[in-house]
């Protein structure tokens, strides 16, 4: 069985369910709209900011503010792509058709990740340009140092979030369980752990805390983060690799229930 056959099959699967369209559209709309809103608010507040805040004012990062919410839609996309197989019973037909479980899982992840990458990159660039338009005279431009890296990084960050969710869903199988863990984790728990002083040292090695570093162009003044933008993305990539490996090992060993 050629992997290309399985990739074609997975592409048919992903484009023939409505959840693909609505989760990805939601990710695009929320990320861009919320980014624009917060950019506009930041512009009007700039004059009343302290000098300290003005020095660390990061127009690029502000335009990505919508990602904190938009990534939740990306998580739903990643979870549903994998766990739909289990919740619908389709997994039995899928694995009977493709008994090589590695080929099955990696073809599915390849197709979903490619789609997520295209959408995430487009979203990241759109969020940047529209956010800068809202920022007016405080805007950054794509040619400024580190800005292009941050914008491309934003697209990579969203893609990795989706891929991480796919790995977790492959391990947990149930969509409700996967979402029940991932949504509160990325929306609340990780932010708390990454910002509270007591847990900051550990918290900043969590996937989203480390990965979002790549979207920062102007680091905070008292920044003591022990990794750079690409280092942070690398830490996130390690988390993603671990989740996928876990999903693969469990899929390989478990009965297809």
């Amino acid at each position: 069985m050629a992997a290309t056959q399985v990739v074609r099959s997975e592409w048919t699967k992903i484009r023939s369910v409505a959840s693909t369209v609505w989760t990805l559209s939601l990710a695009v709309v929320v990320t861009i709209a919320l980014g624009m809103l917060i950019s506009a608010l930041s512009r009007s507040e700039f004059d009343s900011m302290s000098t300290r805040d003005r020095l660390s004012f990061d127009p690029t990062f502000i335009s990505f503010a919508g990602m904190s919410l938009g990534q939740l839609a990306m998580i739903v996309f990643g979870v549903l792509v994998v766990s739909n197989e289990y919740s619908t019973g389709m997994i039995r037909a899928s694995l009977a058709a493709v008994p090589k479980r590695g080929t099955f899982l990696f073809s599915k992840l390849a197709v979903a990740t490619a789609l997520a990458l295209v959408v995430s990159m487009a979203t990241s660039f759109a969020a940047f340009f529209l956010g800068q338009a809202m920022l007016g005279e405080h805007k950054a431009s794509l040619g400024d140092e580190g800005v292009l890296r941050a914008v491309i990084g934003g697209g990579l960050y969203m893609t990795l979030i989706a891929l991480f969710s796919m790995g977790v869903a492959a391990m947990l199988r149930s969509p409700m369980l996967s979402l029940g863990i991932l949504m509160p984790f990325f929306f609340l728990i990780s932010n708390i752990l990454g910002n509270v002083d007591a847990t900051k040292k550990v918290g900043r090695f969590l996937p989203d805390q480390a990965g979002s570093r790549i979207m920062q162009v102007v680091p905070p003044l008292d920044d003591d983060t022990p990794y750079g933008p690409w280092g942070g993305l690398g830490i996130m990539a390690l988390w993603v690799a671990a989740a996928i490996l876990g999903g693969y090992v469990l899929l390989k060993r478990r009965d297809a229930q």
Binding site: R8, S9, S16, S19, G89, A93, A97
Partner: peptide
Amino acid sequence: AKGAHPGRSAYHHLLCLAQSNG
């Protein structure tokens, strides 16, 4: 009986299985 994604059409259900096996 219920081994198909409820949101997918009968045609696409069969098409994805067919494609995986050439």
